[in-house]
Design a protein around this nucleic acid. Structure first.
Length: 202
DNA sequence: AGCACGATTAACT
DNA sequence: GTTAATCGTGCTC
């Protein structure tokens, strides 16, 4: 597996929890006018099945959730709070609704482009939230349903150095305030522990 | 047709 | 810590 190889569809055609965990350390790449804007994924959450009361698919197949029921390796991008876009990757077999929400990145390429969109905030807060990522990488509803595994994709993921278990924090998903248990507290959030990248770069 | 709320963010006290 | 911004979605009437 070469460092710059893209994640194939088989990567996404697996347990959503496994996908979310293994996405940590991989590289999200957005091609804009031939230029790469990219960052390492450092936080992700799993949403899976109609039983999961935190998942949009709890409402079943609707116009909005259609993409989540579709084939894996596609982007599920939705709009919320009247102003923010959220990026997810569809997982598991076609017909089963599941996805991974990309919650935070460590920016690595195209920093000046990211800065131009996020410079009202300090660099620490450029891509430390799901809405911020979409703003920084210019991802909106145009990408809903986009195939991440096509050769000509403008949004895709590349393999990165795996993050060891001891440097991964696992806990409840964020922002599910009104969701009943056990879904509200189920530990489906995966996060690279604070300091991991600054420590390894010494 | 109306309504409550949201997988959030930034600004504020 | 609290709160406004702002509108699509799904549910109820």
């Amino acid at each position: 597996m070469l460092e710059h190889d893209r994640l194939p569809r088989s990567f996404f055609t697996r347990s959503t929890l496994q996908v979310a965990r293994q996405l940590l350390g991989s590289r999200l790449v957005r091609i804009e006018g031939g230029k790469r804007v990219a960052g390492l994924i450092i936080e992700a959450e799993a949403y899976r099945g109609e039983e999961d009361q935190g998942c949009h698919a709890r409402a079943g197949r609707t116009p909005r959730t259609r993409i989540m029921f579709g084939p894996p390796g596609h982007a599920y991008v939705y709009f919320t709070y009247g102003m923010h876009w959220m990026l997810n990757f569809v997982t598991e077999e076609e017909g089963f609704p599941a996805a991974v929400l990309i919650r935070a990145l460590l920016p690595t390429e195209g920093l000046s482009i990211i800065a131009s969109r996020r410079n009202t905030q300090p660099q620490k807060h450029w891509t430390d939230g799901p809405g911020k990522i979409c703003q920084a990488l210019a991802i909106d509803g145009e990408f809903n349903g986009a195939d991440l595994c096509r050769a000509d994709a403008h949004l895709f993921v590349e393999y990165g150095d795996p993050i060891p278990d001891q440097s991964v924090t696992i806990g409840p998903r964020v922002g599910l305030n009104n969701v009943p248990e056990p879904w509200k507290s189920i530990p489906w959030r995966f996060l690279v522990s604070d300091g991991y990248f600054s420590m390894e770069s010494r």
